[in-house]
Design a protein around this nucleic acid. Sequence first.
DNA 1: CAAATATATTTACGCGCGTAAAGTTTCTAT
DNA 2: ATAGAAACTTTACGCGCGTAAATATATTTG
Lengths: 356, 356
Amino acid sequence: MTFRWKAEEGGAVVSLKTIRNMEEFAAASGLSRPTVSKFFHDPSSVRPSTRRRIEEALEQYDYRPNIYAVNQNRRLTKTIGIVVPFLADPYFAEIARVLEMRCIDAGFSPSLFSSHGRQELENDILDTLRSMKPAGVLLAPLGRGSDRAVIESFCANVPTVLFDSNIDKVGDAFVGSDNGQFTSLMVDYLSRTGGSPWFFEMETPPNPNARKRRQGYIAAMAAQGHEPDITQAQGTGWDLEKIGYEEGLRAIDERKGNCGTVLCSNDRLAIGFLAACFKRGLRVGIDPQCDIRVAGMDGHPISKYTAPGLTTVAHDYETIAGRSVQTLFGFMQDEDRGTQRTEMLFEGKLLMRSSA
Amino acid sequence: MTFRWKAEEGGAVVSLKTIRNMEEFAAASGLSRPTVSKFFHDPSSVRPSTRRRIEEALEQYDYRPNIYAVNQNRRLTKTIGIVVPFLADPYFAEIARVLEMRCIDAGFSPSLFSSHGRQELENDILDTLRSMKPAGVLLAPLGRGSDRAVIESFCANVPTVLFDSNIDKVGDAFVGSDNGQFTSLMVDYLSRTGGSPWFFEMETPPNPNARKRRQGYIAAMAAQGHEPDITQAQGTGWDLEKIGYEEGLRAIDERKGNCGTVLCSNDRLAIGFLAACFKRGLRVGIDPQCDIRVAGMDGHPISKYTAPGLTTVAHDYETIAGRSVQTLFGFMQDEDRGTQRTEMLFEGKLLMRSSA
DNA sequence: CAAATATATTTACGCGCGTAAAGTTTCTAT
DNA sequence: ATAGAAACTTTACGCGCGTAAATATATTTG
């Protein structure tokens, strides 16, 4: 038996047995194991005096129940899985951060995963996650790159709320941004303040929202009686600034400086495009003496600090995160989930800065 | 007992019992549980013919051992903890990504945590992590904001490699960048190509590397016979671009346009500073007709796409990640870890772009 | 083909905890 | 004070798997 010695405030010394399990901890606090077990399940479920005794013992011995033993015997754990397609993307980093905080505040243990843009990793993650018996999962799927069958079967077993990218009829709910509104809002603004924009996007974007944004652009232009004017960038993967830069150069050259106003499908593309403008000596901004106006969409954390500041439509991060978690919690209680699937779309907020 | 029916290719139908545990799975594959257990521990430890039988059964039944039961009975798990101070910072997002991939490739399950810049969360994470019995932990501590005692006691129990921020004598090893070299390299370059820089940093930076960079700056300036010229930005937290922007405006105004060359303590600060320059109408660049040269340090993913491209010193991400993981694996085997602590510092690479 | 060796089986215990049932003590309310 | 409820203790089983020991079977070697 191991002993360690701990100096008390008064100078007295008390022998502290190293606690190996709940049995020993219960003995140390002068209670029975079932009572202590009850306490860890819900501290308010025991008598206040009992609770105090346990909490005092807890300070002395810093014991924690073995999570593996606990989780083995629970049907469901207190874990909430959070899966994003690409964590190195600041948008997902930011929303994951907010989601994590909300889960922690609600007394759950978030477990964060990134698919790193790869289908086989997304599948592996869902496989792992299923075996973790999570209380629920917040999933932003790869989208285009997802294996629908895998995600579908996963959602059949685990309460899941999809966010960011929707997959038709999969999961208990979807929470995301109204991409159509994003584009129509921005097209409207750009048209009023200068001229209607051409659209700069990827031909094969990694994220399916891009498609909705394109459709939104086309619709918004049509509503104003304009022909859509779309330039598609080549390239695949998540290195969006690079693609925006390189293909931006090409686009600028093709248009021979006659650029007017460009709406980029997302902020990272726009950031690359801004670099391309700088490279070609184009002055960017809403100011009449400038050569081109550039706008983006997403409200990327850095968009405020580009030169010039990027005019964009920002996701409502807080609301999306809040509603995702809240919706998930609803389904976690619900016995007969799967009966009705809800979709929630939130509007973006126009951030007028000096680039357009 | 639950049955489900599965149509075979030939049209034949086979009854598939739902496998509940290793016992049932062993029965289904016509083997004993201990043998199957051995297989999952190491597939090559059973006879090839046996292995084939299990793998075939595995395809039919997609059974996975209960991770909680497995981990309860193992002294150590196959988990590797990865802890970063702030995941929404692209530098940490990027290095975490690389670390994760390396762990996966080595057959481990990375578990990713962000302290979100808060000490109490860092402590909680370490607490959780300890109870997870991880094989090892890769820890980038908050640094200044860390609770030394907590980290120390954690490292005493778990093989831990610190990265990014060093804490004196804590952990089995430290792997990071040589911040002194970063600054001396940059000061050297800037002095040769224009004039020696003044230094723009935070007064109370969230990351302790900032201190080393300041010292490096002072030393490098002294080596060239110059007086150091340091401007300290106010503000706390991780919103570095904002601080760089707002305090950058102040610094520019104080210097009345007479700015010369500025070296920012890190790229995010520099990005904010660039925005401040743009706001004040200062032309940034190495070109003689520009008003100011701006340099940063870190090799931030976006630094290439600022306008103008940011001259900076880049971390050797791949090497740092690789050596961190490799070092950790070494200590994981080692029985008498703790005898000697190693520190590895890697040099940064100068990225000459057009901002300085 | 027999002996030597490698591999599998059988049996059994332990891990740390959830949880149910029955009995005992403590609290609350009249 | 006393009944009744609430909380606790005791006892006991189960979860799914790791793992050790003894035994049985299969494979390799000469």
